Simulated assay, not measured.
Amino acid sequence: MNHRKFPHKVSVRFSDSEKEKLELNASLAGLKVSAYIRHIMSNARPPIHKFDQSLVVQVVKIGNNLNQIAKHVNIGKAIDGVVLRQIIDVNKKLDDLIR
């Protein structure tokens, strides 16, 4: 086995049922447990913490506002008071998120 290809070792503790499930899943995938874990790590999306989910929702809303502003400007409309208020609102929301 070539240890130079994977020079870092990580130890993890599992319950009996978790270990059995891990070994079964690796076997069903035709992989050794270590290869299976590497595959899962490189192909899985990590769970998003609930705090992060609310942050993502806020950022999506800000993105939608920015898209509306960009559409307004791209169709040749001048930046009027309504659009300026949206820009100020987006800026405030971003400042709030940063804090």
Rank of each mutant, 00 (worst) to 15 (best):
F6E: 10
H39W: 12
I37R: 11
A44Y: 03
A70C: 05
S27V: 00
V60F: 04
H8L: 07
D16T: 10
S42K: 06
I37H: 04
D16R: 13
N43W: 00
N74S: 15
L97Q: 07
L66Q: 02
I40A: 07
K77I: 01
D96F: 01
V82Q: 12
L28S: 08
G63P: 05
G81E: 04
F51G: 15
D16W: 03
K9I: 07
K61L: 05
H39Y: 10
F6N: 14
K50R: 15
K77W: 03
Q68S: 03
V12F: 05
K93I: 00
M41R: 04
F51H: 13
I88S: 13
Y36R: 13
L31C: 05
A26R: 12
G63L: 05
I62L: 10
H72E: 06
E23V: 00
I88C: 13
E23N: 09
I75L: 14
V56G: 11
R85Q: 10
R13D: 01
M41F: 01
L97W: 03
I37F: 02
G76T: 07
Y36L: 05
D96A: 05
V82H: 14
H72M: 04
H8P: 01
M1H: 00
L97P: 02
A78K: 15
K32I: 04
H72T: 03
N65H: 01
S34P: 08
A29K: 06
K9H: 03
P46V: 02
K71D: 01
I87Q: 09
F51S: 15
G76C: 09
I62G: 08
N91H: 14
A29Y: 04
L28R: 11
